[in-house]
Design a protein around this nucleic acid. Structure first.
Length: 423
RNA sequence: GGAGGAAUGGCAGAGUGGUCGAAUGCGGCAGUCUUGAAAACUGUUGAGGGUCACACCUCCGGGGGUUCGAAUCCCUCUUCCUCCGCCA
């Protein structure tokens, strides 16, 4: 959520910047400024009314104490009108503030200067590429065939016990999954991230804090009986650890990593491109989250990108890094780098990590502030990234490491797996 | 699930209808003293809105109510504690 004072002072700049997202901000910003002005006018009037009745109440108290009941009762009558109008003004104020809030929730984050213009994922800018695309064996298989052939993932059973998009991992498949989680967590911990385990369901306030609500309501599973949401990513509970916090500069950097399953309804996205592990309703992910001083957040973002690169280099998977264009950039993000692994047998790139700086967008919703060097309160910057999302990494390993009669395990994972080959 | 009790500033903890945004202690910050530090002493120290700056307004777990006036009374929700029951 953008800050009101930013909108007041830089309306035109914001309109310009949001054009990169193909978002025409003029009408909504005008509405916001009108509502803001209205809200403040009402507030001023209400304040004056309340000040008047506070004054009278004090006088009444003093009169009663000094035994002048008659004068006190006379004053009481004067308060009736004030009470009535402060009640009305209060209601008006609430309605205006709510309307203002609703508008503010509709405005996406301002893209960083470096974000390229563009409409869709086709306009994303490739900024880095690493690793050779392996020449596969004659009749190379896509990962869902490999999974079946070696009996390591059972999609049918998942359908039976839950539904499509909920795979069952078996034997070496399950073990490889656990190995990846441990490996990622170890890498992240070694890089200074504190490992953390969080609830897999969150309340409504947390959903608003990181921006899943109200914009993406339909993408989360909602447990109606208790009004809780299954997390779509560990970003939500982890970042919300610091909701409503007032930190100091000394608290930075705050670096967390956590493994959680992620639940996404992915309504309406079915078809050939979501086969196998490509898109799931439940998947595992290891996430990194940082909370930073505004001056340091882009340095932190670079560090995160380098960190993920290091992991993919170790896994020896061919990948590329994209700088997302305005049209593909997430609602809450100012700058996002996507990592994609090449899925050889499918002949396509699969997104396996998304590393973003949200600047103050989430912090404003979260009321995540710190006292700066001068004792002034400022919003912190929040960042997060996947490190990494499991299913597509798994797909990449299965496809890229397949041989005539089996699948090799990347060297770094062998100690975690306890085997070096699936066959 | 049943029965009770509680929720106050960074923390601890007073306050049960009026001048209380809130005593006191600890902590934090600044100063005195000291070569420096500690101790001691002095001062200062919650958040949000609003203003050029004041004024002023709001906030004592959340929401609603009673009253001229609510941290204080009533209703409700949430959370925590104690006891009972159940249970991985």
């Amino acid at each position: 959520m953008l800050q009101l004072h930013t909108i007041r002072e830089h309306k035109d700049t914001i309109i310009q910047a949001l054009k990169k997202r193909n978002f025409d901000a003029e009408p909504i910003l005008s509405a916001v400024l009108d509502l803001d002005e209205k809200r403040r006018a009402i507030q001023t009037e209400l304040d004056a009314t309340l000040a008047e009745s506070n004054k009278l109440s004090k006088e009444i108290g003093i009169l009663f104490k000094s035994g002048k009941a008659q004068e006190a009762n006379a004053l009481k009558e004067q308060t009736a009108g004030l009470k009535e109008s402060s009640k009305n003004l209060g209601e008006e104020l609430n309605a205006t503030a709510t309307a203002l809030q609703e508008q503010l929730y509709q405005i996406p984050n301002i893209p960083n200067e470096s974000v390229p213009a563009g409409n869709s994922d086709e306009d994303n800018e490739e900024i880095y590429r690493e690793g050779d695309i392996p020449k596969l064996v004659e009749n190379a298989l896509p990962h869902w065939e490999l999974a079946k052939k070696f009996d390591i993932i059972d999609f049918e059973s998942g359908v039976k016990i839950t539904g499509a998009g909920f795979p069952v991992y078996k034997g070496k498949g399950a073990r490889l999954q656990r190995a990846l989680i441990s490996y990622f967590l170890d890498k992240n911990t070694a890089a200074g991230y504190t490992e953390i385990q969080v609830p897999h369901m969150v309340n409504e306030a947390s959903g608003y804090g990181t921006g899943q609500l109200p914009d993406k309501e339909g993408q989360m599973y909602h447990v109606q009986a208790d009004d809780l949401y299954l997390i779509p990513t560990a970003e939500v509970p982890i970042t919300n650890l610091h909701r409503e916090d007032l930190l100091t500069s000394k608290d930075f950097p705050i670096k967390y990593t956590g493994y959680t399953p992620c639940f996404r309804r992915e309504a309406g996205s079915y078809g050939a491109h979501v086969r196998g592990l490509n898109r799931l309703h439940q998947f595992d992910k290891v996430e990194v989250v940082r909370i930073e001083h505004p001056d340091d957040s882009y340095k932190a973002l670079d560090e995160m990108v380098e960190h993920v690169k290091g992991i993919l280099n170790e896994l020896q998977l061919p990948y590329r890094i994209l700088r997302l264009c305005g049209g593909d950039l997430g609602f809450t993000s100012a700058l996002t780098f996507d990592f994609e692994v090449f899925s050889t047998a499918q002949d396509r790139w699969l997104e396996i990590s998304s590393v973003s700086n949200f600047e103050t967008f989430q912090a404003n919703r979260l009321k995540l502030r710190f006292k700066d060097e001068n004792g002034k309160r400022q919003l912190a910057h929040t960042l997060n990234g996947s490190s990494l999302a499991l299913p597509r990494v798994l797909a990449g390993i299965l496809e890229n490491y397949q041989t005539e009669d089996g699948i090799n395990i990347p060297e770094v994972l062998v100690p975690y797996c306890g085997f070096d080959r699936i066959d």
